[in-house]
Amino acid sequence: MKKSRLGEFQELILMAVIVLEQEAYGNEIQRELEERLNERLSMGAIQTALKRMEEKGLLTAEWGEATQKRGGKRKRIYSATPYAHQVLQEMKEIRARLWDAMPGMKPNHAQ
């Protein structure tokens, strides 16, 4: 299978899905990322990224139960696939190697 590369936004959304577990639906993903990034995010952009990652096999989605709190509407709850975990691990390793290779960016432990 061809290696999948994620853009920064997709990577952040995927990580939020994993963090949120059973609460990984649109509004909670938006809230989680806005809180961590300290900026407003478009729900449309989040939904587009979720759909694309589902098409790539990085996410699965299922409908949750309808709740009175949501006016009888059901939530679409997302889960990361094993492939998503593999891609995130690869991205983490690539980033770590690049950080290690940058001159002047290594931690100085002998101060």
Results as ranks from 00 to 15, higher is better:
M1E: 07
K2I: 12
K3Y: 10
L6M: 01
G7T: 15
E8P: 01
F9A: 09
F9Y: 13
Q10N: 15
Q10F: 02
E11R: 06
L12V: 08
I13F: 09
I13C: 12
M15D: 13
A16F: 02
A16Y: 02
A16V: 05
I18N: 11
L20P: 02
E21T: 15
Q22P: 00
Q22V: 07
E23R: 08
A24W: 03
A24Q: 09
A24D: 03
G26P: 00
G26L: 08
G26F: 01
G26N: 05
N27H: 06
I29W: 02
Q30E: 09
Q30S: 11
R31F: 05
E32S: 14
L33P: 00
R36I: 11
L37I: 09
L37N: 03
N38Q: 11
N38H: 10
E39W: 12
R40W: 02
L41I: 08
L41H: 00
S42A: 11
G44F: 06
G44E: 11
A45Q: 05
A45L: 08
I46V: 08
A49Q: 09
A49F: 14
L50Y: 05
K51S: 08
K51E: 08
R52N: 12
R52H: 06
R52P: 01
M53D: 06
E54T: 13
E54R: 08
E55H: 04
T60W: 01
W63C: 10
W63S: 15
G64W: 01
G64E: 00
G64I: 01
G64T: 01
E65P: 14
A66E: 10
K69D: 09
R70Y: 09
R70C: 06
G71T: 08
R76H: 07
R76C: 03
R76W: 05
I77Y: 04
I77W: 00
I77C: 01
Y78H: 02
S79Q: 15
S79E: 15
S79T: 12
T81W: 06
T81L: 05
Y83F: 13
Y83H: 14
Y83I: 07
Y83R: 15
A84M: 10
A84W: 09
A84E: 14
A84H: 09
V87W: 03
V87Q: 04
V87Y: 02
L88I: 08
L88E: 13
L88Q: 10
L88P: 00
L88R: 11
L88D: 14
Q89N: 15
Q89F: 14
E93P: 00
E93I: 13
I94T: 11
I94G: 07
I94R: 13
R95E: 09
A96Y: 12
R97G: 07
R97P: 01
L98C: 10
L98H: 11
D100S: 08
D100V: 03
D100C: 07
D100R: 11
D100F: 01
M102V: 12
M102F: 05
P103C: 01
P103T: 04
G104I: 02
G104R: 02
M105R: 06
N108V: 13
H109F: 13
H109I: 14
